[in-house]
Design a protein around this nucleic acid. Sequence first.
DNA 1: TTTAGCACTCAAGATATTAGAGTGCTAACA
DNA 2: TGTTAGCACTCTAATATCTTGAGTGCTAAA
Lengths: 340, 340
Amino acid sequence: MLTERQIQVLQVIIDEFIQTAQPIGSRAIAKKEDIPYSPATIRNEMADLEESGFIEKTHTSSGRVPSEKGYRFYVDHLMSPFRLSNQDMTTIHQTFEREMLEFERVVQKSARVLSDLTNYTSIILGPQVFETTLKQIQIISLTDYTAVAILVTSTGHVEHRHFNVPSTMQSSDLEKLVNILNDRLVGVPIIKLQQKLYGEVAQMLKRYSSDFETTYSFLKDALLEQQPVKLYMDGKTNIMLQPEFHDIHKIQSLYTIMEKEDEMAHLLRTSGKGIKVSIGQENQLDAMQDCSLITATYSLGEEQLGTIALLGPTRMEYSRVVTLLNVLSKRLTNTFDSWH
Amino acid sequence: MLTERQIQVLQVIIDEFIQTAQPIGSRAIAKKEDIPYSPATIRNEMADLEESGFIEKTHTSSGRVPSEKGYRFYVDHLMSPFRLSNQDMTTIHQTFEREMLEFERVVQKSARVLSDLTNYTSIILGPQVFETTLKQIQIISLTDYTAVAILVTSTGHVEHRHFNVPSTMQSSDLEKLVNILNDRLVGVPIIKLQQKLYGEVAQMLKRYSSDFETTYSFLKDALLEQQPVKLYMDGKTNIMLQPEFHDIHKIQSLYTIMEKEDEMAHLLRTSGKGIKVSIGQENQLDAMQDCSLITATYSLGEEQLGTIALLGPTRMEYSRVVTLLNVLSKRLTNTFDSWH
DNA sequence: TTTAGCACTCAAGATATTAGAGTGCTAACA
DNA sequence: TGTTAGCACTCTAATATCTTGAGTGCTAAA
């Protein structure tokens, strides 16, 4: 186990390295106020810390750098709760203060504020609308053979899909159809739409429609098409500000992975409830082996809605970032609760 | 003026440099089939070409590199029409072939195909809907004090806005309001909405509504809010593949400018009709001084709808890119015409 | 247990060396 | 008069060499 003094040294190394991105030497540590020991003593402690894998050398005669195990220890045991500056707090509050109604805007602004305050890249996974219900369906025909279906959910989310209208259908048929659908489906949770459609509505339609098969299949197209979960990112260029990403190839592989929305979405979706920290190799994706990803979930009532995350170098301001994500995820949760 | 032989040399230099990104020496040029002269002769011609500013040296004893003036001459006079490979053509056709209804998808796919085929970054400015008319307005109330307005245009574009409902309004009032709006505004070109709203509809409302002022102001919010022109980009990482962009700082300033949607939109919007080529310093934006931007417009009928563009290094495959943009802008124009 | 002292290591910056690609110029040639 | 061979010259880029300074590990003394 680590002695009190070793922990103290480790803390200084990590804190310092997070600030400077430079290896820390024994002399520098000894100069710190809380450290009443000589460089030689520190060197002994550092040798021990290195042996147990909490710090590393970049070469034989360099100062020490935290290892991933070191960061992990820091995050799990050492991290002191961060006190956000007043300025940061007002920035956050202002984001939510202004009259804002649309879900997407709130999320977008949150992403912006996160990346602005941290200089890392923010990623927000839009809500998976489990609890939300269908508010209304509209079908508006555009030409003789095309129309657009508009779904509005109880949270005010609007989705629209274009589809081909079967040639056997008249516009009066469409109207009747919309009535049936609204009759049967309004108030139904979005995720149960499919089930309902296969069941009740299918029954209903069979009785009513002369051409059940086509009607039914186009309905499936319009209502059930896989709705992509939306991903909001901001501050992608921030990554390039970090000295550890001055290498084009690293940047490129990172950007390439970030462009793959489904992989990113999957990553955020499978992060557990609450705040999670993935350091370096702990990340699944190869391109992120030099990064840390901190995720936090926001929710509505009991239901987990989505995830907000920050992506930066393993040398991350963990305590500040965790605090920020905490504040923001709570703020988001509150906002959505207040709509309900 | 340039002699026939000088033009020949210039052509080789540009063609070669576009491929290799390396300065071209007299020996390399003399080896070309079409060139029956010795390196010494070529050197004389090169000296002349340099004097007139069409080519440059990177240092005293290096081969020559095209100058921006050289590229400009190439684009204006030398460029031979490019024959797209069958593979490229089928890739393009497949993009449009599949049953596709939604405007956004078509544009997105176009952006993807452009960046895939060129390894440059594609930028498409969504349509400015001059001619399109309002198809239908829906207002759906979400809570007692919020509602969402949905506008559908004749091209099938769907916009929605959230807004606060004045507390004096009942849901029955909303319904009546929607009826009035549809009555008066359906079929009106989108750009004339504002005018109509200020005129006729205002009259109508004054007569009908007890609380004209609030109703009117919330309508303005819902209908006239500046709708952002949408910008679709693809292949942003492609820029990093180019050897001239191995410098982080260039990349960063380029990415930063690309994130400013309004500036990019303005840039594309003010590009003239047809195909335009901006080489290096000809570009307005500082961050693009090492790039070339090729733009092409697509339209519906006489009305110019939007712009598609490719952003790459000044050392660009001009002739291929121009051909591609030509094909694609025509394809887009056709597609939209067929909807009309 | 702590510390001073010292030899040792390594990265990074400065400087020198070399090889090769390419030029410009001159003089000869067709 | 246009073309070319030849040669001295220039500059880059790669490689090797040297120097400095930060930092370590170990030992012996306090």
